[in-house]
Every structure is written in structure tokens, then in C-alpha cells.
């Protein structure tokens, strides 16, 4: 009756020593990144200690019966660690290093340039990281703010889930630089979004005859919120006279688009930009 048990025990011992899997080592339940830790050992004599983890692969001799000291330097990276103490057999233990407190925010904001008055046009995503660049997964509240100078436009606290917090909001009414701020405790990240005028609104043109044709120009072009449309926005002028029609594209410069067009007879000039049409202008023929 005892012989099979004995055989089993011998086989188990043999299997353990071959595979290197043995009794548990008393390791810490979890360690905060960058902190020191100790692993007690029992017995006497020399053994080899291994620490295998993210970015770490350490091997050194230890004396059994003494504590193994793990330095903060070895435990900077969050993740799973395997500790092995091998003499005749190997004793193992696994533990996790968890991220320390947040010390920076990775903050992605889109877009960098946005027309005013657009719904859900600005979005931001924040990831908290500790000083060792580990993603902090512990619950935390990130506050997102939009401000123009010192004037706050928007503030929203968001609970970070799975190490990420995000927001989305409409762009404001006025063109200009908007500060987008994410803050978590004493950690802050700032980004800038340039709000620009939206599509032109109420395009109005004036014109006059000149020796070589007609000179037409817009009044200062604004969007519907009164912001000056940015330079480079194209205005298309069309001149129609009895013997034909001509078209020219002119970019806005300092709020005004200007064009010279060849025309000798009575000419009707119109302008358009984007989906907006301007007034029609009738200019008499050459005297």
C-alpha cells in the first residue's frame, strides 16, 4: 500500500526538479512602481535568484535564510514579475507592480484649427501616466477646460475609465486661439486650438469701370457670427455682358477680395464664395 505513494512522491519530486516548478516563494502581493521590496527566504546555503519582468532580467547569487532585496530601479515598470530562487529545486512566486501616482498626462486634441460654431468639433483624449511612463489605471477624475485668455468657456470633470478620459464639444462663437486644458490633481496638460471664421455670410460687392474693363471688390467678408473670413478664402467673380461671360477666382486679402475683369459693354457682375452668393452689380459700358 505504501509503495505506490512512495513512487508518486519520488516522481513528483523528480518532475519538480526537472521542470523547475516548485513550492511558492513568499513575494509581495503587489508593489507600487519604483518602490523597494523584499522577499524572505528559508533554509541555508547558496542559491541563485532570478527576477524576470518587463524590462528586467536579473540573476544573482543569494544566501538562503536572508531576505532578498529588490531595488526600486528593478521595479519601475508596471506589469507581472516572476521571482525564482533555485538551489536543488526552484521556488517561484509572481507579483504585480502597479503604476505610481499620475505625474503626466498624454493629451491628444483635435483638430488644431476649427471653424466657429461647429457641433462636436473639438475632442480631446487624456491618458494619465506615472513618472516611469506606466499607464495609471486607478480611478481618477480629469477636468477638461476650454478658455480664451483667462476667460473660461467650458469645464467638464470626466472620470477616467481604464486609464482614459475624453470629451467632445462644439467650437465657440469667436475666432481666435483657444486653450484646451486637461488637469488631474496637480498635473496639467495644455493644447491650443485655433478657431477660425466659418463660411462667408452676406457677401456684398462694389465695382467701377476702369480703362481696361471693370474693377470689382467685396466689402470686408465676415462669417455669420461677425468674424473676418481668413485670408486665402476664394471668392469667385462672374462678369456677364452681351457677348459672353467671364469668371475669375480671387483670394481674400485682409478681409477683401478684389478682381479686374475685361469688359467693354454693360456688365453684370456677381460673386460667390462657398455656398454663399453675393449681390449682383450692373456697371455701364464704356462712354
Amino acid at each position: 500500500m505504501r509503495r505506490p505513494l512512495l513512487i508518486c512522491a519520488v516522481l513528483c519530486l523528480a518532475a519538480c526538479s526537472i521542470a523547475g516548478v516548485a513550492q511558492d516563494l513568499r513575494v509581495p502581493a503587489s508593489v507600487t512602481a519604483g518602490e523597494e521590496a523584499t522577499i524572505p527566504t528559508t533554509g541555508s546555503g547558496k542559491a541563485t535568484f532570478y527576477l524576470v519582468g518587463p524590462g528586467v532580467s536579473r540573476k544573482n547569487d543569494v544566501s538562503l535564510g536572508e531576505e532578498i532585496h529588490l531595488q526600486g530601479q528593478d521595479l519601475r515598470n508596471a506589469g507581472d514579475y516572476l521571482a525564482l530562487v533555485c538551489s536543488d529545486t526552484c521556488h517561484t512566486g509572481t507579483f504585480y507592480v502597479i503604476a505610481a501616482k499620475p505625474s503626466s498626462l498624454t493629451f491628444l486634441v483635435h483638430p488644431s484649427r476649427v471653424p466657429v460654431g461647429q457641433g462636436d468639433a473639438i475632442s480631446g483624449v487624456a491618458f494619465p501616466f506615472d513618472q516611469f511612463k506606466n499607464l495609471v489605471l486607478a480611478p481618477a477624475t480629469v477636468t477638461f477646460q476650454l478658455a480664451v485668455g483667462d476667460k473660461p468657456l467650458f469645464s467638464r470633470p470626466v472620470r477616467a475609465q481604464n486609464g482614459v478620459a475624453w470629451f467632445r464639444t462644439a467650437s465657440g462663437k469667436s475666432a481666435g486661439l483657444v486653450q484646451v486644458i486637461a488637469s488631474l490633481d496637480d498635473v496639467t496638460a495644455k493644447r491650443a486650438v485655433q478657431q477660425v471664421a466659418s463660411e462667408p455670410c452676406n457677401l456684398r460687392i462694389t465695382g467701377q469701370r476702369i480703362p481696361i474693363g471693370v474693377l470689382v471688390q467685396t466689402e470686408p467678408v465676415h462669417d455669420c457670427a461677425g468674424n473676418v473670413v481668413p485670408d486665402g478664402t476664394i471668392v469667385t467673380f462672374s462678369a456677364t455682358e452681351a457677348n459672353g461671360k467671364s469668371t475669375v477666382d480671387a483670394p481674400i486679402k485682409q478681409g477683401i477680395a478684389r478682381a479686374q475683369m475685361e469688359a467693354s459693354g454693360t456688365t453684370v457682375v456677381s460673386a460667390a464664395s462657398g455656398v454663399v452668393m453675393g449681390n449682383e452689380l450692373r456697371i455701364g459700358g464704356k462712354p
Partner: peptide, 24 residues
């Protein structure tokens, strides 16, 4: 679990199973 509004980052949770062998 998270895909950013502009599609510039995705967060994934992986449940991985494998056999790990450490050799000296």
C-alpha cells in the same frame, strides 16, 4: 474598450494564454 473620436488611438484589453519558459 476605447477608440478615440478621431481614430488616433485605440485601447485594447488582452486576455492572453501561453506557456512561458525561462531558460538560463
Amino acid at each position: 474598450v476605447f477608440y478615440a473620436p478621431e481614430g488616433d488611438v485605440i485601447e485594447l484589453h488582452d486576455t492572453a494564454e501561453y506557456e512561458i519558459r525561462i531558460s538560463d
